[in-house]
């Protein structure tokens, strides 16, 4: 198909970077210790949260601070289910139910917002309020009267001793969890790249660019937005489930204001309309932040300043601009 070939040519640089990144990341366990590998697994979980933001904001233009809330809901639901039933062989089922719960919450919230004609900044405000409320609620559940399925919610201490991920009889260890995350991130990248060039992808693009026009081309924009928001909530919830499997704990801090805004800031600074930029920038930020914080620097201050500079000078985002420029150079050299 000519169309696909042309697309490959136009994005050859991005695909090359994606491939190189994948190889470099896969090699990590061979040149660092298990501790570093485990830390890196956390960064990849953050990347999945970033992917959910790319999905709703980058492709469909839904500006939301609610992803941390869905991550928290997914995480808490998974933790409660796996602690209540205490049967590690059904891990996948718990994960599926947890993700379904988060999707349902996203669908209900999305229904109220998008069918009510709420858009753009207001979606950001409502989702931010929802996230803060989730955190406030979970923080005040310290007493023994706060239980779900007999699992005490634990207030600010959250839930601890969550069983690790087990599929069938295989119990994931630090190394295999790392590889699972690499595979998941790569799979998301490939699937989203494919979906973007399918009808559903163009429909999302249409909603992002101009909702009135989309309606007049026969798109049910509110429905599309609810669907996108629900899927995005599901991806975030998956990140929450994986977070529990990684650290064996979850606390209300996972739904804090900071937790809800940093992924959005990272997407904006890296390049919200470029999936590879969102993933790379998120992971690199956490790597850098890890080094700089131990050296006594305030990385949030730097991130804030960087965000301002990016919006003023490179509104497409740092990585997205670089990739675009280099791709342009390649095409010029060819011509």
């Amino acid at each position: 198909m000519m169309h696909a070939k042309e697309r490959l040519k136009n994005n050859v640089f991005e695909y090359a970077i994606a491939l190189i990144t994948l190889v470099v990341v896969l090699l990590i366990p061979f040149y660092t210790g298990l501790y570093q590998v485990n830390v890196f697994t956390y960064y990849l979980i953050c990347a999945i949260l970033g992917i959910s933001i790319y999905f709703i904001w980058g492709i469909a233009g839904i500006f939301s601070f609610g992803q941390a809330a869905f991550m928290g809901i997914g995480g808490y639901a998974y933790a409660i289910l796996s602690k209540h039933f205490d049967d590690p062989s059904k891990c996948l089922l718990y994960a599926a139910v947890a993700i379904a719960i988060a999707c349902a919450v996203a669908a209900i919230l999305g229904y109220f917002m998008f069918y009510g004609g709420i858009n753009d900044v207001f979606v950001g405000l409502i989702t931010m309020c929802v996230t803060i409320s989730c955190q406030t609620f979970m923080s005040q559940t310290a007493g023994s009267q706060w239980q779900i399925l007999g699992v005490a919610l634990g207030g600010d201490n959250g839930l601890n001793d969550i069983p690790g991920l087990t599929i069938g009889y295989y119990r994931f260890n630090e190394l295999s969890l790392f590889f699972l995350l690499v595979i998941l991130v790569a799979a998301f990248y490939i699937v989203i790249k494919i979906v973007e060039h399918r009808k559903f992808g163009y429909a999302m693009l249409s909603v992002r660019e101009n909702r009135t026009r989309s309606e007049l081309l026969g798109y049910d924009t509110a429905k599309l937005q609810v669907i996108v928001f629900t899927i995005g909530g599901g991806i975030a919830a998956l990140a929450g489930v994986l977070y529990c499997c990684w650290g064996y704990y979850i606390t209300p801090a996972s739904m804090s204001l900071k937790a809800s805004t940093i992924p959005v800031v990272l997407a904006a600074a890296g390049g919200k309309r470029s999936l590879i930029s969102v993933i790379l920038f998120t992971v690199l930020y956490y790597i850098l932040s890890n080094y700089l914080t131990s050296a006594g620097a305030d990385t949030l201050l730097m991130l804030g300043a960087l965000l301002i500079v990016v919006i003023l000078v490179l509104p497409q985002g740092i990585f997205a601009t670089i990739i675009q420029k280099l791709q342009g150079l390649i095409q010029k050299a060819e011509a």
Binding site: K199, N210, T212, R213, Y219
Partner: peptide
């Protein structure tokens, strides 16, 4: 179907992308 007065096309997309969106359904 309707052609609006202003603005009707998705300015930040290519011609083919515009038409791909339009014919999507």
């Amino acid at each position: 179907s309707m052609k609006m007065q202003i603005p009707g096309v998705f300015e930040a997309l290519t011609i083919r992308e515009n038409l791909r969106i339009a014919a999507g359904n």
